[in-house]
Write a protein that binds this DNA or RNA. Sequence first.
DNA 1: GTCTATATGGGGATAGAC
DNA 2: GTCTATCCCCATATAGAC
Lengths: 223, 223
Amino acid sequence: MNQAEPDTKTRLLDAAETLFAERGFAATSLRAITAAAQVNLAAVNYHFRSKQALLEAVFARRLGPINRRRLELLASAQARAGRRAPPLEEILEAFIGPAFRLRAELAGSGTSFQRLMGRLFSEPGEHVQAILKPQFAEVAAGFLPALERALPRLPGAELAARIHFMVGAMAHTLAGTHVMQLFVGDRCDPSDAEGTIRRLVSFLAAGLRAPLPSRRRPRSTRS
Amino acid sequence: MNQAEPDTKTRLLDAAETLFAERGFAATSLRAITAAAQVNLAAVNYHFRSKQALLEAVFARRLGPINRRRLELLASAQARAGRRAPPLEEILEAFIGPAFRLRAELAGSGTSFQRLMGRLFSEPGEHVQAILKPQFAEVAAGFLPALERALPRLPGAELAARIHFMVGAMAHTLAGTHVMQLFVGDRCDPSDAEGTIRRLVSFLAAGLRAPLPSRRRPRSTRS
DNA sequence: GTCTATATGGGGATAGAC
DNA sequence: GTCTATCCCCATATAGAC
């Protein structure tokens, strides 16, 4: 429990989290992880069964608390709203906030897990998907009805597409993009979690409330 | 030039495009690629120099035309608008459309490249970033001023953040997410490119025009 | 241009001493 | 729980015959 010298298992989790986030799962060798953790190579297969199981453990450690916090915040927003639907902004804040506040709460390693989580959404591979499915099924069951109530006039297919966009914006921001430095320069401060959350909530709320797209664009812009 | 039997180089590009999109770069072996292309293993190092160079060739083949089309569409929108700024929706359509119309234009392999491009935005690794930088610098130079003119009252830092969100939504949609099937079921038809473009433009235009987030939320939602 | 064969290194996983 | 040593497979890349 001494923070100066965590035990082997924790050191492995920390190192794996960082390296998986930086290089991706397939490109990270167990040798690199054990070297970074200053642990023997065989320790991975003793404490975890395999590289795959190590990845699962990395996620299990963080994702549970995040999703619990999400549902807590949603529940308290619903309690405040009484019988009516909570405001869209509060629903979004409940979903987004816990993920982005990791960095502040965990100091060093919060950043890595944010990046890892962001990347994972667009990562292929069935093992990865298998990790996330049960975790997200629970939050989906809570947030989907809330969003439907907050946006009662939005058709289901449209809501589905917009949730898709929303997750994309969030995941990309969590991943801490690289390419976009070209567009935006360094005017974004990624360590300003509260500012990022406010901006994201404002952007997404407006997008989710957007008027339905017309079936044909008003002015002909044929490609 | 016979489409029934493309030459070895093209077969390799096609197979690499598909497999990189499905499994990621590091997780795809040259053996898998040559097997899928029904080509000898050594052909990769004859036609391209290395695995890395093969990836670059896969991108060079598609990204150039897409970005050229983007700038053409932007230019024609600007021509229609005369001295005024083109409508935001037309700018977005010019940026988004060409990427999503790949699928229709290329039949089979368009889908793979869309997925690959979407994933690449959040992928780490300097080689990958090095591929995209020069390509995107050009489109950024065209679109950034156009967006600034279309959103004259938006502060620069805010615009930067929102472009970030925009790219995330687009990349995630291109990647053809997996996890989100839980949220949305199968109510999204990914083959409906025009529908997706319309929805994305509508969502993003509203998000980009969103009111500035207040520095403190009106109602206290402390975490 | 295309093949076989191989060089060379790194990967995950494990056995068994301590 | 931790270490050394090693098994065994697969990776990229190349050499050289055809």
